[in-house]
């Protein structure tokens, strides 16, 4: 009864899924990262955050990046956004090297970064105005994007009046309004509660289906990665390197029922094996060893504890 059902290999793909991947790989390459490396030099010495990262994303692909804490996920996405420099290798968007931030690469951050002094609508208009659209065009398009994320009613609200989920919806609308080539998302739903998070995931997939956008999405939640991604880039820490690039065999369209499907479980098992290897501790957190001292009074045994 308790025996785990024997899982198929995560490499096993149905004919439909295999076809999909074949077609996907024939699409043009949007983002190409070649031998990318990054070292931080600080007073404590040099830290190699990223080492020899290689991957490609194709047009309209959804790639998730996953890895233990401190493996350089944020560093990678910040380099791709142009917010951080890199020390070796190349990062190319449409074959052009990435230098500095620009509207071609939209970004949604983990923290809330809406401009608090602008209304929701003006936040979405911001990027359009920065890129020399007229005010009327910007306003018209902003309202369309707000419609898409379901927040038309809140067009004139200020960010502090919105819930966390709503703020991230606006942030997505704001990034998409510029019609970037790629949307970079650094744990955008990390601060949300489980329910809101699930809603945001389906919503993001809906958006992705309906517009021409390539998404690179960072998460440390395995389910989230499998649910969203075409392919998952698994990083390992110290130094941050690509461990594996997994093609998710779960067919599209995705829904939450698939979480118990064999393909889903197989992928999850593989990811778990990669990220939480039985022994090796390469996680930043693992190096912090709390020293457990008993703080409760002797004899103060509350039932059901332990």
């Amino acid at each position: 009864m308790n025996n785990p059902p024997s899982l198929p290999s995560h490499l096993l793909q149905s004919a439909a899924v295999r076809d999909r991947f074949t077609r996907l790989k024939q699409r043009e390459v949007i983002l190409e990262v070649k031998h990318l490396g990054k070292q931080f030099t600080s007073a404590q010495g040099t830290v190699t955050a990223l080492k020899d990262i290689n991957f490609k994303t194709h047009r309209r692909e959804f790639v998730c990046v996953i890895g233990p804490s401190g493996c350089g996920k944020s560093t990678l996405i910040r380099i791709l956004a142009g917010l951080e420099s890199y020390t070796s290798g190349e990062a190319l968007l449409d074959g052009e090297p990435i230098v500095g931030a620009c509207a071609q690469r939209g970004m949604v951050f983990q923290g809330y970064t809406l401009f608090p002094w602008l209304t929701v609508k003006k936040n979405v208009m911001f990027g359009l105005e920065m890129n020399d659209h007229s005010k009327t065009t910007a306003e018209r398009e902003a309202l369309q994007w707000l419609e898409l994320v379901g927040l038309s009613k809140f067009a004139d609200a200020y960010p502090h009046q919105l819930s966390g989920g709503m703020k991230q919806r606006v942030a997505i609308a704001r990034a998409l309004a510029n019609q970037p080539r790629i949307l970079l998302m650094d744990e955008p739903f990390g601060a949300l509660d489980a329910q809101t998070r699930a809603k945001m995931q389906s919503h993001l997939l809906e958006i992705w289906k309906n517009i021409d956008i390539t998404i690179l999405f960072i998460t440390h939640d395995l389910d989230e990665a499998i649910f969203l991604a075409d392919r998952i880039l698994v990083l390992k820490a110290h130094p941050g390197e690509v461990q594996e690039l997994i093609e998710v065999p779960v067919p599209r369209p995705r829904n939450f029922m698939q979480i118990t499907s064999p393909e889903f479980l197989a992928t999850k098992a593989r990811l778990e094996a990669l990220i939480h290897p039985p022994k090796v501790e390469d996680d930043d957190e693992a190096q912090i060893r709390p020293h457990m001292i008993r703080m409760a009074r002797v004899g103060d045994d509350v039932e059901d504890v332990e």
């Binding site: 917010l83 931030a101 620009c102 990027g127 990034a175």
Partner: peptide, 14 residues
Amino acid sequence: DIALLEAALTLGAK
């Protein structure tokens, strides 16, 4: 908050 500046940069602000 520097994140606001970074957000603006990724939106194409000069």
